[in-house]
Deep mutational scan, measured.
Amino acid sequence: MTEYKLVVVGAGGVGKSALTIQLIQNHFVDEYDPTIEDSYRKQVVIDGETCLLDILDTAGQEEYSAMRDQYMRTGEGFLCVFAINNTKSFEDIHHYREQIKRVKDSEDVPMVLVGNKCDLPSRTVDTKQAQDLARSYGIPFIETSAKTRQGVDDAFYTLVREIRKHKEKMSKDGKKKKKKSKTKCVIM
């Protein structure tokens, strides 16, 4: 069974824990209790493949930012979460993405942009803004509501699919490099 290491990042209060708990335990946590770091595991079937999701729910508070490099190193894919009623959390996505790329030393890291709290009427981040940002990053965008469960499975499952595509691409690139290195030079 394939294991996928997913990391949920975003500013404090955007609903990272609520999304994760909704996926794992099928219930909505409405009281806000700032996370330092929590880890969850769940076995699911995605596109006919049974897999184990190892999900790291991270601290959004700035005082825990020193811990970010460590979990970013171990993560295979990242859910970059903002709240649709919090423009600052949307603007912060850029910083999370840049930090992930720096730590992973790669421009090509599996990510999904997630606009959470889409059940709320007080939207300050337009869907088109988020779609445009995701398009500019070359990553999928999904709106979710941890409260109603809308888009929750889709967000995590899409990230797994992005990781699969990335692994497939990397193995193809690896095979191309191996083929090239088999060419021999004969000096007579």
Rank of each mutant, 00 (worst) to 15 (best):
residue 2 T to R: 14
residue 2 T to Q: 15
residue 2 T to L: 09
residue 2 T to K: 14
residue 2 T to F: 11
residue 2 T to H: 13
residue 2 T to D: 15
residue 3 E to Q: 10
residue 3 E to P: 15
residue 3 E to S: 10
residue 3 E to F: 07
residue 3 E to W: 06
residue 4 Y to R: 14
residue 4 Y to C: 10
residue 4 Y to F: 14
residue 4 Y to Q: 14
residue 4 Y to W: 09
residue 5 K to R: 13
residue 5 K to F: 02
residue 5 K to G: 08
residue 5 K to A: 05
residue 5 K to C: 05
residue 5 K to N: 13
residue 6 L to C: 08
residue 6 L to Y: 05
residue 6 L to K: 00
residue 6 L to G: 04
residue 6 L to R: 01
residue 6 L to D: 00
residue 6 L to P: 05
residue 6 L to M: 10
residue 7 V to A: 09
residue 7 V to K: 07
residue 7 V to Q: 04
residue 7 V to W: 11
residue 7 V to S: 07
residue 8 V to E: 03
residue 8 V to Q: 04
residue 8 V to D: 02
residue 8 V to K: 03
residue 8 V to T: 05
residue 8 V to L: 09
residue 9 V to R: 01
residue 9 V to C: 14
residue 9 V to A: 07
residue 9 V to G: 06
residue 9 V to I: 11
residue 10 G to Y: 02
residue 10 G to D: 02
residue 10 G to Q: 01
residue 10 G to I: 00
residue 11 A to C: 12
residue 11 A to M: 13
residue 11 A to K: 05
residue 11 A to W: 07
residue 11 A to I: 15
residue 11 A to Q: 09
residue 11 A to P: 08
residue 11 A to H: 08
residue 12 G to T: 10
residue 12 G to L: 06
residue 12 G to H: 07
residue 12 G to E: 15
residue 12 G to R: 05
residue 12 G to A: 13
residue 13 G to S: 13
residue 13 G to L: 12
residue 13 G to Q: 12
residue 13 G to M: 12
residue 13 G to T: 10
residue 13 G to R: 08
residue 14 V to W: 04
residue 14 V to Q: 09
residue 14 V to K: 07
residue 14 V to F: 09
residue 14 V to I: 14
residue 15 G to V: 00
residue 15 G to F: 00
residue 15 G to S: 00
residue 15 G to E: 01
residue 15 G to A: 01
residue 15 G to I: 00
residue 15 G to Q: 02
residue 15 G to M: 00
residue 15 G to L: 01
residue 16 K to C: 08
residue 16 K to T: 07
residue 16 K to V: 01
residue 16 K to S: 13
residue 16 K to G: 07
residue 16 K to H: 04
residue 17 S to K: 02
residue 17 S to N: 01
residue 17 S to I: 03
residue 17 S to V: 01
residue 17 S to P: 00
residue 17 S to L: 00
residue 17 S to W: 03
residue 18 A to T: 07
residue 18 A to I: 06
residue 18 A to P: 03
residue 18 A to Q: 12
residue 19 L to M: 14
residue 19 L to E: 15
residue 19 L to A: 15
residue 19 L to K: 14
residue 19 L to R: 00
residue 20 T to G: 07
residue 20 T to C: 08
residue 20 T to Y: 02
residue 20 T to A: 09
residue 21 I to P: 02
residue 21 I to A: 15
residue 21 I to E: 15
residue 21 I to G: 15
residue 21 I to H: 15
residue 22 Q to D: 15
residue 22 Q to V: 04
residue 22 Q to W: 10
residue 22 Q to F: 06
residue 22 Q to C: 05
residue 23 L to I: 08
residue 23 L to K: 11
residue 23 L to Y: 13
residue 23 L to P: 03
residue 23 L to H: 15
residue 23 L to T: 15
residue 23 L to R: 11
residue 24 I to N: 13
residue 24 I to E: 14
residue 24 I to M: 13
residue 24 I to H: 14
residue 24 I to Q: 14
residue 25 Q to E: 15
residue 25 Q to G: 15
residue 25 Q to I: 06
residue 25 Q to K: 08
residue 25 Q to R: 07
residue 25 Q to S: 13
residue 25 Q to A: 11
residue 25 Q to W: 03
residue 26 N to W: 06
residue 26 N to A: 13
residue 26 N to E: 14
residue 27 H to T: 14
residue 27 H to E: 15
residue 27 H to S: 14
residue 27 H to L: 15
residue 27 H to K: 10
residue 27 H to Q: 14
residue 27 H to P: 05
residue 28 F to D: 03
residue 28 F to Q: 04
residue 28 F to T: 05
residue 28 F to H: 07
residue 28 F to C: 06
residue 28 F to I: 06
residue 29 V to A: 12
residue 29 V to G: 11
residue 29 V to S: 11
residue 29 V to K: 06
residue 29 V to L: 13
residue 29 V to Y: 08
residue 29 V to W: 08
residue 30 D to F: 10
residue 30 D to Y: 09
residue 30 D to V: 10
residue 30 D to G: 11
residue 30 D to M: 09
residue 30 D to T: 13
residue 30 D to I: 09
residue 30 D to C: 11
residue 31 E to S: 10
residue 31 E to A: 10
residue 31 E to Y: 15
residue 31 E to R: 07
residue 32 Y to F: 05
residue 32 Y to M: 05
residue 32 Y to T: 05
residue 32 Y to H: 12
residue 32 Y to A: 06
residue 32 Y to I: 05
residue 32 Y to Q: 05
residue 32 Y to C: 06
residue 32 Y to N: 05
residue 32 Y to P: 05
residue 33 D to W: 05
residue 33 D to A: 03
residue 33 D to L: 02
residue 33 D to M: 03
residue 33 D to C: 03
residue 33 D to R: 02
residue 33 D to T: 02
residue 34 P to N: 04
residue 34 P to K: 04
residue 34 P to M: 07
residue 34 P to L: 05
residue 34 P to Q: 05
residue 34 P to Y: 06
residue 34 P to E: 08
residue 35 T to G: 02
residue 35 T to M: 00
residue 35 T to E: 00
residue 35 T to S: 06
residue 35 T to I: 00
residue 35 T to Q: 01
residue 35 T to K: 00
residue 35 T to L: 00
residue 36 I to M: 07
residue 36 I to T: 05
residue 36 I to G: 04
residue 36 I to W: 01
residue 36 I to R: 01
residue 36 I to H: 00
residue 36 I to E: 04
residue 36 I to V: 12
residue 36 I to A: 10
residue 37 E to F: 02
residue 37 E to T: 02
residue 37 E to A: 02
residue 37 E to Q: 04
residue 37 E to Y: 02
residue 37 E to M: 01
residue 38 D to N: 05
residue 38 D to E: 04
residue 38 D to L: 01
residue 38 D to M: 01
residue 39 S to V: 13
residue 39 S to Q: 06
residue 39 S to N: 09
residue 39 S to M: 09
residue 39 S to G: 15
residue 39 S to C: 15
residue 39 S to E: 06
residue 39 S to K: 05
residue 39 S to P: 01
residue 39 S to D: 09
residue 40 Y to C: 02
residue 40 Y to R: 03
residue 40 Y to H: 06
residue 40 Y to Q: 01
residue 40 Y to P: 01
residue 40 Y to E: 01
residue 40 Y to M: 04
residue 41 R to Q: 12
residue 41 R to E: 11
residue 41 R to A: 12
residue 41 R to M: 12
residue 41 R to W: 09
residue 41 R to L: 11
residue 41 R to P: 15
residue 41 R to H: 13
residue 41 R to I: 09
residue 41 R to Y: 11
residue 41 R to F: 11
residue 42 K to A: 10
residue 42 K to H: 10
residue 42 K to F: 09
residue 42 K to S: 12
residue 42 K to D: 11
residue 42 K to R: 10
residue 42 K to N: 11
residue 43 Q to P: 12
residue 43 Q to N: 14
residue 43 Q to F: 07
residue 43 Q to L: 08
residue 43 Q to Y: 08
residue 43 Q to G: 12
residue 43 Q to V: 11
residue 43 Q to K: 14
residue 44 V to F: 08
residue 44 V to H: 11
residue 44 V to N: 10
residue 44 V to M: 13
residue 44 V to L: 12
residue 44 V to S: 13
residue 45 V to H: 12
residue 45 V to R: 12
residue 45 V to P: 10
residue 45 V to F: 10
residue 45 V to A: 14
residue 45 V to Y: 09
residue 45 V to W: 08
residue 46 I to G: 13
residue 46 I to P: 09
residue 47 D to K: 08
residue 47 D to M: 06
residue 47 D to F: 05
residue 47 D to A: 09
residue 47 D to H: 08
residue 48 G to D: 10
residue 48 G to N: 10
residue 48 G to W: 05
residue 48 G to H: 10
residue 48 G to C: 05
residue 49 E to R: 09
residue 49 E to F: 06
residue 49 E to W: 05
residue 49 E to N: 12
residue 49 E to H: 09
residue 50 T to V: 12
residue 50 T to H: 12
residue 50 T to I: 12
residue 50 T to F: 08
residue 50 T to S: 10
residue 50 T to M: 12
residue 50 T to G: 10
residue 50 T to L: 10
residue 51 C to V: 15
residue 51 C to A: 09
residue 51 C to P: 13
residue 51 C to G: 10
residue 51 C to Y: 14
residue 51 C to D: 12
residue 52 L to T: 15
residue 52 L to P: 15
residue 52 L to H: 15
residue 52 L to R: 15
residue 52 L to C: 14
residue 52 L to W: 12
residue 52 L to D: 15
residue 52 L to G: 15
residue 52 L to S: 15
residue 52 L to K: 15
residue 53 L to D: 04
residue 53 L to T: 11
residue 53 L to S: 10
residue 53 L to G: 10
residue 53 L to H: 07
residue 53 L to Y: 11
residue 53 L to C: 10
residue 54 D to S: 08
residue 54 D to E: 14
residue 54 D to R: 06
residue 55 I to V: 12
residue 55 I to H: 07
residue 55 I to G: 04
residue 55 I to Y: 04
residue 55 I to W: 05
residue 55 I to F: 08
residue 56 L to N: 04
residue 56 L to V: 14
residue 56 L to C: 09
residue 56 L to M: 08
residue 57 D to H: 00
residue 57 D to W: 02
residue 57 D to R: 00
residue 57 D to F: 00
residue 57 D to T: 02
residue 57 D to E: 02
residue 57 D to K: 01
residue 57 D to Q: 01
residue 57 D to C: 03
residue 57 D to V: 03
residue 58 T to P: 03
residue 58 T to I: 02
residue 58 T to S: 09
residue 58 T to L: 00
residue 58 T to Y: 00
residue 58 T to E: 03
residue 59 A to D: 02
residue 59 A to G: 12
residue 59 A to Y: 00
residue 59 A to L: 00
residue 59 A to C: 06
residue 59 A to P: 02
residue 60 G to Y: 01
residue 60 G to I: 00
residue 60 G to E: 00
residue 60 G to Q: 01
residue 60 G to W: 00
residue 60 G to F: 00
residue 61 Q to N: 12
residue 61 Q to H: 12
residue 61 Q to A: 14
residue 61 Q to P: 07
residue 61 Q to I: 07
residue 61 Q to E: 15
residue 62 E to P: 11
residue 62 E to G: 06
residue 62 E to R: 06
residue 62 E to Q: 08
residue 62 E to N: 07
residue 62 E to C: 06
residue 63 E to D: 11
residue 63 E to Y: 06
residue 63 E to L: 04
residue 63 E to H: 07
residue 64 Y to A: 02
residue 64 Y to G: 02
residue 64 Y to M: 06
residue 64 Y to D: 02
residue 64 Y to Q: 02
residue 64 Y to W: 07
residue 64 Y to L: 08
